[in-house]
Write a protein that binds this DNA or RNA. Structure first.
Lengths: 355, 355
DNA sequence: TCGTTTTAGTAAATCGTTTTAGTAACTCTG
DNA sequence: CAGAGTTACTAAAACGATTTACTAAAACGA
């Protein structure tokens, strides 16, 4: 026989329930103390001494009135936000979004959310955004292709960053492998005169990618002509910057049979520039991309590219950050986590032309 | 002459300051009450009666100890989160990300952040995510290309949704114009046999886009052959689904001189399918896309497409939501905000071939 | 039967702000 | 010089949960 509620909560209509029931109200309704409800609903140790009948009453009422603990009250008390901050250069470049997919896939399972902040490589935002995220009490930060311009006062995971900041775990591609895969592929197709498009100075992968490519080329006995090296400029996530870079390259009027670009976006722009001057891809010039974004497979010609497992890098970052939070400073700190690239051979590369 | 602090806060090192100073600590340090500091720091009305000297002392100390009000405490008290929730199907389709850029550009100016939740058109997530966002006390929800499967108990703005849910403001493209722009363009190039790729059933734009296209075609006296209409299937954000749809179309073996696709992504996939069977674009078949994502301009051939101002739609959504929050129910409710499309003519469309 | 343990709870403190409702000590004003 | 008003503050309540430290009653053990 159900007991009568002591201080019945008036049935709230759809109109009035906007703010939900508080623990206190629910407790009054049941004639119990908030303490008891809290203990039961959270199944804390003290719950063992509460009889099942009471527990059931509590669960039932919580269900009926759709009780949801107030997020702020709970977080204030527990000093936890169940929220991460994510720093990205820009969302619509096809790169960050893939990483974020991976991040979200892990976080949503754990009841975490994340706040996104785009800095567009602006120095002021690189400092300001982390501040803001800290004020929002994020429990950790994931920085994607983002230089660390702040003192990390909480766990930070960097995806494709290369800043070597103390305390920051870096998730990076095995760039040595990546460079070798690319260079070997071109070499095996007979390419010896290879042009390169480097990344922008601000992009964190630029330096290491270039360094590893130089080494891989050297090992293969390929000489890099500095006239055949150009660099991306500007920060819009459009192929246009690759187009412009390729035009600069063509303006030098030096012969090359292959072009190794910084990423797929710039490869797509570069192909446009090549086609415009009558260079066929891949018959006259092979073009090799990097990343394997969705557009790569269906571009014309379909891009041969070095695939980065972006989704996995995101989920690994989230996973690692969650682990960092549970191990209380006892854990052995991991500085670098490496993921492996893969070469995806499609139609934009071919045997070097003879002439 | 600076006064002596009453209860000096020990200078915290970089190591220990992780949690920051509380208002109480700062007040004790200054020999004042937390109330006074709160009044001064927030410049609330009562601050007029506080002498400048005291104010300065407070500001100085706040600065020195880098005082930041605790977000949870403040939000708990004020019942405000300064956070929106954003529902998207998927981040890496190049569409949502552009909208989010617009959203963020407005929110960051106002000190707001947003939580992202991707539902991938799964019914369970379409119900679960809004719940979660509500529990996180978001002040409003922006739904991008997302059906509303929840009772909106707080302000909701839908971008490219067509659910006509009471209380939801819809930001939508002027689909009539869009359809006309597309049909007129193809008509003027001499196309009469036009094929169509419709969107997936779950995509909110599918129905209206198709309806308006049918009307525009009718007005122009173009007959739509139902054999020349195929539909996208599957929910990956890759051109592959457009590729498959175009193959189905080609399998019907009916002649057409133009193809009006649901979006740029599917246009890119469709072009691949056409090229594979020896159809040249645009010489044999003109292809018209929709959206004008970054990839459109540099695809080969460059896509002629109907541009949606995605960034603007995002910033308009954020702006509108912010306004909704300040006007307290007095405001006249706006149900629909329309934005205008634009046709971007590039290389994927041309005069209809004669044969 | 007395003392201990278990059962079934509760009151009050706490997290860190903001706000409401004061209180004293001055300064005017007539 | 009494009353009103201003100045310069502060104590306490509130937001809504969790946690610590109790209490009162019942059950158990010797």
């Amino acid at each position: 026989m159900p007991r009568k509620p002591k201080n019945p909560i008036k049935e709230k209509t759809d109109e009035t329930n906007s703010r939900g029931v508080s623990l206190k109200e629910l407790a009054a309704h049941l004639g119990l103390s908030p303490t008891s409800l809290s203990i039961v609903l959270n199944d804390s140790p003290a719950a063992t001494s509460i009889p099942q009948e009471t527990k059931d009453r509590i669960f039932e009422a919580a269900e009926k009135f759709n009780y949801r603990p107030n997020y702020f009250a709970r977080s204030l008390r527990a000093q936890r936000s169940f929220t991460f901050g994510v720093l990205v250069p820009e969302l619509s470049d096809g790169y960050s979004a893939m990483v974020l997919n991976g991040v979200e896939s892990v976080l949503s399972k754990e009841g975490y959310f994340y706040l996104t902040a785009s800095h567009m490589h602006r120095e002021d935002l690189l400092k300001h955004h982390p501040q803001m995220l800290l004020e929002r009490q994020v429990e950790g930060i994931i920085a994607v292709d983002t230089p660390i311009r702040f003192k990390p006062s909480l766990p930070v995971i960097s995806v494709s960053g290369h800043d070597d900041v103390k305390g920051v775990t870096n998730i990076i591609l095995n760039h040595n492998s990546a460079a070798k895969l690319g260079i070997e592929h071109l070499y095996n197709l007979g390419h010896r005169k290879i042009a390169f498009i480097k990344g922008q100075d601000f992009s964190s992968d630029t330096e290491i990618r270039w360094e590893t490519i130089r080494q891989a080329a050297k090992q293969r006995g390929i000489e890099i002509d500095s006239d055949l090296v150009v660099q991306l400029e500007g920060d819009i996530p459009s192929p246009e910057i690759g187009y412009i870079a390729a035009q600069k390259l063509l303006a030098k009027n030096k012969k090359f049979t292959a072009l190794f670009t910084f990423n797929d976006i710039s490869a797509i722009g570069a192909i446009r520039a090549l086609l415009e001057v009558g260079c066929r891809v891949p018959e006259d010039v092979s073009v090799l991309g990097f990343d394997d974004i969705y557009a790569a497979e269906f571009h014309n010609p379909a891009l041969t590219t070095i695939r980065q497992p972006l989704f996995e890098m995101g989920s690994l970052a989230a996973q690692t950050l969650l682990e960092k939070l549970t191990e209380q400073a006892d854990g052995k700190f991991v500085e670098i986590l490496t993921v492996e690239p893969e070469i995806i051979i499609r139609q934009s590369t071919a045997e070097a032309s003879r002439n």
